[in-house]
């Protein structure tokens, strides 16, 4: 492990000392104030760049606080302009095209924690598979993308020993279930409603084989975005998953959030989620969040108040987060 860390830092140092041909290096870290305790979700190192004129590579490493191991979140090659027929390809270890939130890293959320409905379906760390995914832009008047992939591993479910799913800063999780192999497909559409308002909609499907049998997810998602100027924006996003396994009844998971940016530096919003019959518990939560970004996205202060009903047990959580990023400033992808 020490060797790996040394290699990373040596390469990072060499990268800084060399030329502009080197990949972009970025680091994201945070501080979390949860129930009066100070902790962190760790540090993420991103190494990104072009491999050649047709392909780029993206590597994301995550060092969780208190854990010895550096986790490989994603490491993949993507070919976007090198293939015929408008095809695109991703290969390696990456977050497959399954709904909206699965591809988003936690520090890009408007809120702090992933909704419980999402972690119940996709796992605490979301689904990152090792495999191959192909997509194609369909010849339609609007942007329409069809993607499909095959992976050696499916969705891994992590459980914390204290039973608190998804609690940030915990380091004693273990993998209880791992399905393999797995396949995904998604068909998404993006339309401009006006020059400043846009709607994205998608339908996804996942099928994975586990020891317990076949597990299927079918999801629909949407994202509405309105951004008339640099001081105001509204994002409304939601996803629904139908989970079918060998249990007698299918389970349902749904979340939605709205995030309103009301000045250059302030935003607030609400997030709601619900899931039933997943892991034998019904879960509801409702929360509000506030964000402050004094200088672009390089540092963000967040506060979230969330009420949770987990199988009849209710609690209110207040979490604060200071998140920072170091490295090349790149616009966020929509």
């Amino acid at each position: 492990m020490r060797k790996l860390i040394c290699i990373i830092f040596i390469n990072a140092g060499l990268g800084l000392a060399q030329t502009t041909m080197n990949p972009d290096l970025s680091v994201v870290g945070d501080l979390i104030i949860d129930d009066g305790e100070l902790t962190t979700s760790g540090v993420e190192l991103a190494i990104q760049g072009y491999v050649n004129p047709f392909a780029r590579a993206d590597v994301f490493l995550h060092k969780h606080a208190g854990e010895g191991a550096v986790e490989l979140e994603e490491a993949y090659l993507s070919i976007e302009r090198g293939l015929p027929l408008g095809l695109g390809l991703r290969s390696g270890c990456f977050r497959p095209d399954l709904g909206k939130i699965n591809k988003e890293h936690m520090h890009t959320y408007a809120f702090i924690q992933a909704p419980g409905a999402v972690t119940a379906v996709l796992g605490d760390e979301m689904w990152s598979g090792t495999g191959l995914e192909v997509d194609v832009l369909l010849p339609l008047p609007w942007y329409s993308k069809l993607s499909a992939g095959g992976f050696a591993n499916g969705i891994a479910h992590h459980h914390h020993e204290d039973g608190n799913e998804g609690e940030l800063g915990e380091d004693h999780e273990h993998e209880s279930e791992k399905s393999q192999p797995a396949y995904n497909a998604r068909w998404s559409h993006f339309v401009d409603l006006t020059p400043v308002a846009h709607l994205e909609m998608g339908v996804s499907h996942f099928i994975g084989t586990a020891d317990e049998g076949v597990r299927r997810l079918t999801g629909v998602d949407f994202k509405f975005r309105w951004r008339p100027d640099r001081y105001r924006s509204l994002t409304w996003q939601g996803e629904y998953f139908l989970v079918e396994a060998d249990e007698p009844e299918p389970a349902h998971a749904v979340y939605t959030f709205a995030n309103l940016q009301f000045s250059q530096v302030w935003n607030w919003g609400v997030v709601l989620d619900y899931h039933s019959d997943i892991e034998e518990e019904t879960h509801y939560s409702a929360g509000v969040f506030l964000g402050y970004s004094p200088v672009e996205e390089s540092s963000v202060f967040r506060l979230a108040v969330t009420g949770v009903d987990q199988g009849g047990e209710r609690e209110v959580m207040v979490i604060g987060q200071i998140i920072w990023s170091l490295g090349p400033h790149k616009p966020h992808r929509f």
């Binding site: 609007w142 942007y143 994205e200 640099r230 616009p331 992808r333 929509f334």
Partner: peptide, 16 residues
């Protein structure tokens, strides 16, 4: 502001 333009899929369609 030309520094901050959100990368929208509809722009990709124009460039396609």
């Amino acid at each position: 502001d030309p520094h901050y333009v959100e990368v929208l899929p509809s722009y990709m369609l124009k460039v396609k």
